[in-house]
Design a binder for these strands. Structure first.
Lengths: 131, 131
DNA sequence: CGGGATCCGGCGCGATACTG
DNA sequence: CAGTATCGCGCCGGATCCCG
């Protein structure tokens, strides 16, 4: 496995708040990479095959899609079902855990929807001030 | 500005679902980097000074903390208040927008808390199966 | 069709030194 | 104290080729 991004800095701080922060951080490291959320969102309405996902997402290399799916499978967020026909068929589906995470992803999507304009205007204002 | 991670693949897909997905993706790209969430969480209970944040977070270089804070400021999630005393004093504080995002971060923290064990066991099971 | 193996450029990010 | 500037490693991730 190549994915080392999940790491969180380790140092001796055991405060309750800090504890929670590490957890969010590790979750976002898991889910915040370039493709994981897109996969989770596209799997919302049922299982999908590999190339089906690839076409839906549209900008992902098969390498990264494979890596992403492996990571999600490893963390128990999706299941991988192989049907040994010819040609082979592999279906990916959200687990219960994956669906529970997806709810939060949808909530974030809603937040992004509502505040996208505010963010973009803040961004161009900031960029404008600084040349 | 070095932060180009916010980019989202651009290609002509205008489906409604896909639309939402890009948004989540861009939000998570913004917030899913190594330090942004930690900063947001530590700013939850009021404004803090630069080195105060640095000490609280504990593993961040001043370079990355500066970059992270600039990014959050750019997107209108935190405010930066300079008090030109000697020595200078700079306070960072969450904006309304930042606090609304922080709620979702807290929700994700809760999710992480509840499902951390499940994820870790799934992970070691997966790793065990594959040597 | 659904991957694995390999090469490699770009940049995320830490370390260090310098400024006001 | 609160940054900015520069250097350099590591690894993310795209392109390409191969396999069952």
């Amino acid at each position: 496995m190549e994915r080392r991004h999940t790491d969180v800095p380790s140092f001796g701080y055991t405060g309750a708040e800090s504890h929670d922060c590490r957890l969010v951080s590790s979750v976002l490291a898991r889910v915040g990479d370039k493709w994981s959320v897109l996969v989770v969102m596209f799997l919302a309405d049922g299982s999908k095959r590999f190339n089906e996902l690839k076409r839906l997402i549209g900008g992902v290399s098969q390498r990264m899609l494979t890596l992403t799916l492996r990571g999600l499978e490893r963390d128990g967020l999706v299941t991988r079902t192989v049907t040994p026909t010819i040609p082979p068929r592999v279906d990916y589906e959200l687990t219960e855990l994956g669906r529970s995470l997806q709810k939060h992803a949808v909530a974030l999507a809603g937040w992004a929807n509502e505040n996208q304009a505010a963010i973009e205007s803040a961004r161009s204002r900031f960029d404008g001030e600084k040349g």
